[in-house]
């Protein structure tokens, strides 16, 4: 037996020994029932909606076709026929740099943020009158106060990142309101003047949204905002992962989430909320909020 063969044998035996430590009894049985529940839920949801979705798809296709036709034949201001492909390209190139709207600090909660660009700050996500009482140590952020309408009334307010940009404002052709910039679905980003996940300090009381830190595909990090009832005070639980202890809340967090999270794209799943297409999870257990991966 050569040294290589011997090493192979030792590798196989070591891997087998380690893998064998995982036994059926050592596994979390709840996961199987969770998975089966998800399968059942989706199956039940798919059935009756199939026809509706097919109809919606047909309508969308027809609308798109009509739009393309209109763009192709619509004359511009000088009476010339605008080349549709050229217009789209221009509009797209104008859209891209708009991904960093300034946060005014007084806008309402931007509910419909699904599709927000990850690199964009879609404006303050603070739901209501939240106050940062303890800014993160790595930011010299003074106490900031924001007032905003309730989540139920702010849904009509457009998110800055979803606002179409008029090419004419940039000295281009008339407004076609076409945006081709790719948009990945993600929760709203934490406003830059609120506590970021990277700067949370133990034993410091924060209020307002809690952060959800995520690693993006390119390896960079992003902090998403999980809305909380205005005036909710919390602190990070040191050494327990992305968990936050609620010190006080003026109203039911569960009820607040039920009103606020669906508009941001979150979906209720079991005892918590998940963001479709990701493993982001938000849940409340007693006075502890989890905002991270899995859960």
């Amino acid at each position: 037996m050569t040294a290589h063969d011997d090493l192979e044998r030792r590798l196989r035996e070591a891997f087998e020994a380690k893998a064998s430590q995982v036994t059926p009894e050592s596994l979390d049985r709840d996961r199987e029932s969770d998975f089966e529940r998800q399968l059942a839920t989706t199956a039940a949801r798919r059935g009756p909606r199939r026809g509706v979705l097919a109809g919606a798809g047909l309508l969308a296709a027809a609308a798109a076709a009509a739009g393309v036709l209109a763009l192709t034949i619509q004359p511009d201001d000088n009476g010339r026929v605008v080349d549709a492909a050229r217009t789209v390209t221009q509009s797209s190139s104008v859209t891209a740099p708009t991904s960093a709207p300034t946060a005014s600090g007084s806008t309402g909660m931007t509910q419909p943020t699904q599709g927000t660009q990850r690199t964009a700050q879609p404006g303050p996500q603070q739901p209501q009158g939240s106050t940062t009482t303890a800014p993160s140590p790595d930011r010299a952020t003074p106490t900031t106060t924001q007032s905003a309408p309730s989540p139920t009334t702010s849904s009509a307010e457009p998110s800055p990142s979803s606002e179409p940009v008029s090419p004419s404002a940039a000295g281009s052709t008339p407004d076609r309101s076409i945006q081709l910039a790719p948009r990945a679905a993600a929760p709203p980003l934490m406003s830059s003047d609120l506590p970021q996940a990277s700067g949370l300090a133990p034993d410091v009381t924060y209020d307002g949204p809690v952060p959800l830190f995520a690693t993006l595909e390119d390896g960079s990090g992003a902090t998403y905002s999980i809305p909380m009832p205005a005036g909710t005070k919390w602190l990070v639980i040191n050494g327990s992962g992305p968990r936050y202890r609620i010190l006080s809340a003026p109203s039911s967090i569960a009820d607040y989430w039920a009103a606020a999270l669906p508009g941001q794209g979150w979906v209720q799943s079991g005892a918590g909320w998940t963001f479709p297409g990701t493993s982001y999870t938000v849940s409340l257990s007693g006075d502890v909020v989890f905002a991270g991966y899995g859960g």
């Binding site: 133990p202 690693t215 992305p242």
Partner: peptide
Amino acid sequence: LRRRRTVREHLKVAEPD
């Protein structure tokens, strides 16, 4: 594994060792 590395870098307080 990549997340662990990034989280360790960005979230030294909240993430357990």
